[in-house]
Amino acid sequence: MPKVKIPRKSTLIDMTAMCDVAFLLLTFFMLTTKFKTENPILVDLPKSVSDTLLQATNNVQVAVTKEGRVFFSVDGQVRREALANLLFTRKYIKLEYAATYNSKTREIELTSNIPDKLQEKVVREFSLEPNIDVSLANLPIWLQLTQEQRAALKDSIEKKNWTVNLRYPDNKVVKLQTGLDTTVTVLDGDKKSSDLILLTYWSRILDRKKANETAKASPLTANVPFNKLVDSLNSKIALRGDRNVPYPLIKNVIGALQDADEYKYYFITNLRKLKK
């Protein structure tokens, strides 16, 4: 009996098709991706049946943690940079000290000799950092630390109850706190001002500026009313409140938003399903 010879087949496969698919998927994900932002602000969201989704970009987010700390964040690096520049030119934040962190004493040491181009550096850091973690007064100091230092410090302050001090040139020591400064000052003419009011108000001004620029730049928009144009760029104000926050605290936050002439909010909630 002759031996049956099984023909040896090549183990090589044609990979072209697989390669095609892989790259197709790759392009899709690359184009649709929006990176998960590092969102270290832990918030236990309330639940609701409402399933309206928040638009993906251009939002302004106000987070309120269980302890009542308020954080603010603006979507988009370009918008953040514009906001930082606005706040600097309007002198709402001032660069008064150069800062270095001393890890042994857990102090941020401040000096009044400010090196060249420090403001540009701070503006750049502002644009790269999604959340505003400290009060506006301390922000220029805070942003001089490296990103890793900030993340580590914020974590230690909130979770390990560290005290981190700011040591001013005259040896005055002030404790650094995370979250915006919520004290409201009344300016002349009954206008109120606080960190949150300022930030909300000026990020809305950005929309108006942008609308102005588009109106000037393209003749197509000539017939569109200005308000509509602003609306189309409108950044939505999303509130990420912890569900265990006492309501009066949220009321204060909303009060601040009202003072900044904002009346429409989006409460971020987790979806809950109704049992039928």
Binding site: K36, T52, L53, L54, Y265, I268
Partner: peptide, 13 residues
């Protein structure tokens, strides 16, 4: 990537 946009409740004050 994040696909899930958070769900929200629209409120007018």
């Amino acid at each position: 990537t994040t696909f899930s946009k958070p769900s929200t409740m629209e409120i007018k004050w």
